[in-house]
């Protein structure tokens, strides 16, 4: 009996802590929703007043964003979709091949390459940012989609993840396929890739999230207003002297909606993708 009561007390205490943290996590998102439904021009100057949580909603910001003035916001949105899709397609294609080969083949130099994967995983991108910037200028890739994704195409994290995943693939199948005359590439693309689909889903989400929110590199590469991705575009509105706060608040809100929906639907893959960095080899 005493035990039961103690359990109930502990349970209530834990619940209280969790509610507290869930509140701290969700409240800022709620604040953004309220901000997007409030008159925009005063917000940046005076900040978000608590009264606004209880005042009537104003759809003006959304009217602006869906109106003619909002067209550049939707250009940024489209750019973000293009850049993220390109990155997902290319990085999954290349990283999966590399990770797969590191797991399934024995070949001279394999250990060396794997150590390289781990080493480049540790080098901070910011160190190489200036030479890469110069390189992108030299190649004429400044202000292009491809220049924006170039440094991320073969992500060492993804290589590592696909290697870990491939270690669990059935090697006997390879032999059988070879006997049947399947080429090495045929084995990968037609037999193994279908078996690796869950890992593709996890990495697609992981790379997509990274690309959708990527900031520093696109800030360097992208120049013209109609090439900007969402974070860079929104950042241009984030000034004390701006005149387009309607786009900023409604736009910030609309930029997280698809990601949150994706997260709620594919939670399992999000978590698998995130764990990619921590799997010990």
């Amino acid at each position: 009996m005493v035990h039961g009561r103690q359990d109930k007390l502990i349970s209530a205490g834990l619940l209280a802590i969790l509610i507290g943290f869930a509140f701290l996590s969700l409240f800022p998102v709620l604040s953004l929703l309220v901000a997007s439904l409030s008159p925009a021009s005063d917000l940046m100057r005076y900040g978000l007043a608590p009264e606004l949580f209880f005042s009537s909603f104003d759809l003006e910001n959304y009217r602006v964003i869906f109106g003619p003035e909002g067209s550049r916001y939707w250009t940024w949105y489209l750019n973000s979709i293009i850049v993220s899709s390109m990155l997902i397609a290319l990085s999954l294609f290349f990283s999966s091949m590399v990770g797969y080969a590191l797991a399934m083949y024995e070949f001279p130099g394999k250990r060396f390459i794997f150590i390289m994967v781990l080493l480049v995983l540790m080098i901070p991108f910011e160190i190489m940012m200036l030479p890469l910037f110069q390189l992108v200028i030299t190649l004429g890739l400044i202000d292009t989609y491809f220049g924006t994704i170039l440094p991320l195409i073969v992500a060492p994290v993804a290589v590592f993840f696909f290697r870990q995943y491939s270690l669990g693939l059935p090697k006997e199948v390879m032999e059988a396929a070879r006997v049947d005359g399947c080429t090495e590439y045929g084995i990968f693309f037609r037999i193994m890739v279908p078996l690796m689909l869950p890992s593709f889903a996890a990495m697609a989400i992981f790379q997509g999230l990274i690309s959708w929110n990527n900031f520093l590199w696109p800030l360097l590469v992208l120049r013209s207003n109609d090439m900007l991705t969402l974070p860079i575009g929104l950042a241009t509105l984030l000034t004390p002297y701006g005149t387009n706060y309607q786009l900023l608040f409604a736009g910030a809100m609309l930029s997280i909606v698809p990601i949150v929906i994706l997260f709620l639907v594919f939670q399992r893959y999000f978590i698998a993708g995130l764990m990619s960095g921590s799997v010990k080899g």
Binding site: P28, V29, S31, L32, A35, L43, M44, G47, L48, L209, W212, N213, F215, L230, P231, L234, A235, L238, L248, F249, A252, S255, I256, I259, V260, F263
Partner: peptide
């Protein structure tokens, strides 16, 4: 899931 720009906007508000 939020980008740092979104987070910055919220925190500044």
């Amino acid at each position: 899931l939020t980008s740092v720009v979104v987070a910055g906007t919220i925190f500044r508000l």
